[in-house]
Design a protein around this nucleic acid. Structure first.
Lengths: 185, 185
DNA sequence: TATCTTTTGATAGTCAGTATAACATAAGTA
DNA sequence: TACTTATGTTATACTGACTATCAAAAGATA
């Protein structure tokens, strides 16, 4: 645990808070770096002393959020997986909305998708028998599951969460988990 | 059938060809409007006399391509649906790659997705019995199918089409169509 | 072919937003 | 207190989108 200069810590916090607040007011894409530094009461140039660009800041903000989800779903109690995911999404709804609705966050969205897919591959590879030539490749199944989950989350958020998270978890189980499991086992 | 000035027709063609050629050389996002007009040997300002911005040009290029797909899948012979789709994607691979891999085409991607979803809803609504409260809502199923299809296409293109289109059609049937049909009927 | 209409081109300029340099000052650390 | 590091100020370069104006060229029409 290295000590970080209090000023650095404060700058990071101020810039992060400013970005989130501004992205909620207008849209992520419309937020300029000047907006962020002015809202944070920080010099413009200071932004570039800490981050390469706006996406870099967003990515770092997202990191711990995703780590937390990773920790939650790692225990992998298949019965509650959907519940945990949608609880988490509801908790960080603003952040997810930001990532899923803005034009310029494709790399971030890709990283989320790929990490979900990689997780499934890691879990399933040892379980799977010798690959049948006729089977759907595991890599494609994993990609499909990850993309479907993100699409479901996106739908929920874009429609302002019309169903409670418990219902979404159930839908997730039927729509995605069941059909994926059917193909794997 | 209205007559279009030959100059207009020529300008449209030149700008469209230039965008596609340039997007293949670098990436769509890195292509500037000045690039396009220079490649097309057309005055910079002329671009704005025809299109609002780069995405507007792309959208109009995409339109007829999608109309063609719509026509093909409208007859909806479920057995050959996957085959038709992946034939079409292979034929227009460059365009699909452009749309699916660039950061700034989220609106275009959304439109494709939503039109696929709308089609499924139109086809299935009359077939479906009174909605069971426990069922997965048709709207979500449609959104899921559209997003999954796009994800599968994306995977195929990003990995440089490692399987022939016939195999992809088969995967599409098992991974997406079967599970969706299972939930609808 | 002559006339009229529309499109195009050249030029110059505005604007927003990103990014960097140099030096002075303030805040934190030990 | 002395030293180190982060921050602020100011000025500047640069890219790319977008517009205005006026002259010239190409096409449509009769």
């Amino acid at each position: 645990m290295e000590k970080v200069d209090r000023r650095v810590k404060r700058t990071h916090r101020l810039l992060g808070e400013a970005l989130i607040a501004l992205a909620l007011e207008k849209s992520y894409d419309d937020v300029t770096i000047r907006d962020i530094t002015e809202r944070a009461d920080v010099a413009y140039i200071t932004f570039f002393r800490h981050y390469q660009d706006k996406n870099d800041l967003l990515t770092k903000l997202l990191q711990e959020m995703l780590d937390e989800l990773e920790r939650l779903t790692h225990e992998d109690n298949r019965a509650t997986e959907g519940l945990l995911i949608f609880q988490h999404v509801q908790q960080y709804a603003a952040m997810y909305q930001m990532v899923l609705s803005s034009e310029s966050t494709l790399p971030v969205r890709r990283r989320i998708r790929d990490s979900i897919a990689a997780h499934l591959i890691a879990v399933c590879t040892p379980l799977r028998n010798v690959a049948d030539e006729m089977d759907v490749p595991l890599e494609i199944i994993a990609h499909h599951k990850a993309a479907s989950l993100l699409a479901l989350i996106e739908w929920w958020l874009e429609h302002n969460m019309p169903y409670p998270l418990e219902r979404m978890a159930e839908i997730y189980n039927r729509l995605i988990l069941d059909s994926v499991m059917h193909l794997i086992c």
